[in-house]
Design a protein around this nucleic acid. Sequence first.
DNA 1: TTGTATGCGTTATCAA
DNA 2: TTGATAACGCATACAA
Lengths: 343, 343
Amino acid sequence: MAGIKDVAREAGVSASTVSYVLSGKRSISAKTTDKVMAAVEKLGYTPDASARKMRGMRNQIIALSAPIRGDINQARYNAYFLRTAWAARNAGYDVMLLTGPDAVKDIRRVTQSNLADGIVLLDVEQDDERAAQSGTFSKPCVAIGYPSSHAGCACVDIDFALMGRKAVDFLYEKGHRTIVFLRNNESDYNRHSGYVVIFRESLLAHAKELGMTVIESEHYEADSFDAQHFVSTVFAHPDRPTAIINQANASVLSQVLMALHNAGMSIPQDVSVLSCGTYFEGEPTRFPITEMPVMPEELCAEAMNLLVSAIEEHTDIKGSVELIEPALKRRGSVAEAGSGGTI
Amino acid sequence: MAGIKDVAREAGVSASTVSYVLSGKRSISAKTTDKVMAAVEKLGYTPDASARKMRGMRNQIIALSAPIRGDINQARYNAYFLRTAWAARNAGYDVMLLTGPDAVKDIRRVTQSNLADGIVLLDVEQDDERAAQSGTFSKPCVAIGYPSSHAGCACVDIDFALMGRKAVDFLYEKGHRTIVFLRNNESDYNRHSGYVVIFRESLLAHAKELGMTVIESEHYEADSFDAQHFVSTVFAHPDRPTAIINQANASVLSQVLMALHNAGMSIPQDVSVLSCGTYFEGEPTRFPITEMPVMPEELCAEAMNLLVSAIEEHTDIKGSVELIEPALKRRGSVAEAGSGGTI
DNA sequence: TTGTATGCGTTATCAA
DNA sequence: TTGATAACGCATACAA
C-alpha cells in the first residue's frame, strides 16, 4: 500500500509537494509535476480516504435508507437504488445501503461516526420515524416522499394529489363518466405508504366533485388477485365503465389486460386504461399503457441536488418541500369514451 | 461533534481510559466505567470511523459491484442487493453500491483508497472483466456467479448444469417425453449471462441423452412476447408436449399461464409447469408454480462468509469455487404425464 | 487500575 | 517554487 511518502521519495520531493501536485492548490513547476505524476503512476498511489477525511475533508459517501419492513417485496425500489447511486456518482459521491429494520439506529451509526456525509430516505411513510427524527441527525437529510413530520429534512416527491386530479380530469375530458379504480394490494394501504393513499383519496374526491362514478376493485393481497373475477364483476355493473385507472403493479395489471382481451374487450376501443404511480419503463408488457408514472430519475436527481448543496455549501434545506408535477406518458391506451380513436 | 477527549474531560479521566472502557481490552473499575458510560451517553459520543481506521482497524464496509449495462432492467437484482446487505450487516459490515458502467474503475477507487474492506461481484458474466482483474485488487473479492476466469476471486453459484439435469430427470421420471422449453428474453443470451446459457445447454444435452423431445420457444425481446401465439404454436406440435420448463421472468410466465388457462388447459392435469432459475418467492402469481429457484439468500450468505473470513482471518479464498445444489420448491404444478395427480 | 506518549496518512500553515 | 511541520481523533505500547 504505497503512501504519499513513498511517492515523495520515489519522485525525490517532499510529501507536501506531492499533495499539491495532486490537488492543484499551488503552482508547481512542470518538471516537478512530471516527476511526481510518474511516481504516482509507478506506485499506483491513491490517497487514503480516512486520512484525508481526518484533515476535515468529506468522505464522499451518501447513506441511502431503505429499511426492510416485514415481508414486503421491495423490488420496486430498485429503480430508486440505481437512480440514487447514479445521481450520487455524478456528484462525486458513493452510496451506502442501509436496510436494517431499525433505520434510525443505522442512520445514527453512519452519521455520528462521520462515515456518511448525508442521508437519503426512501420508502417514506406518512408517519415516518426517520423523517420525524431527522432534525437530530448530524448530517443533512432528504426524503424522497412527503411525510407529515418533516421539519428536519427536505422533501422531494411527486405531487400525488395533483396526479389524482389530473388523472380524473384527463378521463373526464375524454367523455368518461363511469370508471374503475384498480387498487394496489392491501398491504400498501395498511402500512400507510404515503403516496398510495394520497393519490387514491385525491382521485376519489375529485371524481365526486365532477359527478363521476368510480367502481373500486375489491381488496386483495399480493398473491391472491383474480383477474378474471375482477373483470367479470366490474363490467357487470349497470353503468358499464369505460375506463380503468390502475394503481396496481405490473404483474396484476398484466393479468387484467389479458383478462380483458379474453373477454373480447379491446384497448382503447372498448375500455381505456390509465396507469398511475407505476413505472413500466422497460417492463415487458404485452400492451403499451398510457401512464402517469412515478419518476425515480427526476426525484433522485433533485434529491441529490438538494443534498449536495446542503453538504457542500451548507445550504439550509430543513423543512423545504418540493413537489414535482406528474408527467403523462401517452402510449395509446386511452381514447374518447365510446369511440375508437386512440390518444 | 463530541470526541474522545470531550468524553474524557466530562468523565474526569484520560482519553485512553475512555478508549479502553469502550473496547473492553483492559480491566477498568466499575466506578470509572460508570462515569465514562454516563459521559458517553450524555455527549452522544460515537468514535470517528476514519480516525479508528487510521489506527489500522477496518472500515467495516463491503463494496457491492453491480454495473449498469446498457438498458438492462436490473429489477431482479434487488433481492441480491437486499440479501447481501442483510448478510453483511449480520457480520458487522455496511454495503456500498457500485453501479457505474466502468466497474473495475469503481472497484479500484474504493479498494485503493481503503474505503472498502472487500468486494462482492454481482451480475457476473461468463467472460467477466471484474473477475478477470480480481487478482490485482488490493482487497478480497467474491463473485456471485461462475465466470470462466476466476483465479483472483472466490466464486459462489448455484450448480446450473446440475439444475438442467435435475429438471429434465424430474420430468422424465414423471413420464414426460415431449416438453417445451420457454426461453428467457434474447438479451440475456446475447450478453452471455452465465447461468442462463449454462442451464439451457445442460438441459438440452441431458434431454437428448434420455431421448426426450424438447420444443424451444421462439426468440423474443423483453416487450414483444406473445403468450397466445406461444401456446397455440407449441401445442399444435404433432407430439403434444406434456410439460413446460420455464426460464423466463414472472411477467412472461404469468401471461403464458393465463393463455394456457384460456386455451382450456389446466395445470398440472393437462400440462405440467416447472420454472428454473427464477425467483417467485413473494411474487403475486395467480397460480403457484413448482420451481428450482435461484437462491439469493443462500448465495449471499455464503459469499459473505467467505469474504469475512478472508478479511478477518486472511483466509486465502482466491480461485475457490463453491457450487450449491439447486433446491426444488414443490408447489403442485407438476404431475405425472397424462394423469391428474399433483406433485 | 489508570495516565502519557506515539503514530496512522493526509493537508494546511508557516518558513525558506 | 518548494520543504518542514503541526494537527486531525483515535488505539495502543509503555510508564506509573
